[in-house]
């Protein structure tokens, strides 16, 4: 068990800069009424951010301009099909893990 001062400083600094953006909307929005156009904009955020996070999972950032992790992309196919059919978070996650493991085993 060790903890040096500079490490403590890094952790508290990172904690602070993570805490602030998380909490500010919860403090500010209590006091103002958001315009309809902002609410509309926010309604698109879930779909956009989930898509972006999915794409992020199969992009490899290295020296080349753009590399795709084909194994992840292949695993996405059965996972997406199961998601569409079952509409269940748990089942999709389990099938996803199995698919990924299978793809890594084969390729």
């Amino acid at each position: 068990m060790s903890l040096n001062l500079s490490m403590l400083f890094i952790i508290s600094g990172c904690a602070l800069v993570t805490f602030i953006p998380r909490v500010i909307p919860f403090i500010v929005i209590r006091n103002i009424k958001l315009p309809a156009i902002v609410i509309k904009w926010l309604s698109f955020i879930p779909i956009c951010i989930f898509t972006a996070l999915i794409v992020d999972s199969f992009i490899i950032q290295d020296e080349s301009l753009l590399s795709i992790d084909w194994r992840v992309l292949i695993a996405i196919i059965p996972t997406l099909i199961i998601a569409l059919f079952t509409r269940s978070l748990s089942i999709t996650v389990i099938v996803g893990i199995v698919s990924m493991a299978a793809v890594r085993f084969v390729f």
Binding site: P46, L53, I54, L84, T92, M100
Partner: peptide, 23 residues
Amino acid sequence: PEVLGLDFSLTAMFLALLVLQLE
């Protein structure tokens, strides 16, 4: 831990969440 495919659980979850949104 990658060998097991566990790291893919997050992506799978986002896929399901996306489908549920579209539903």
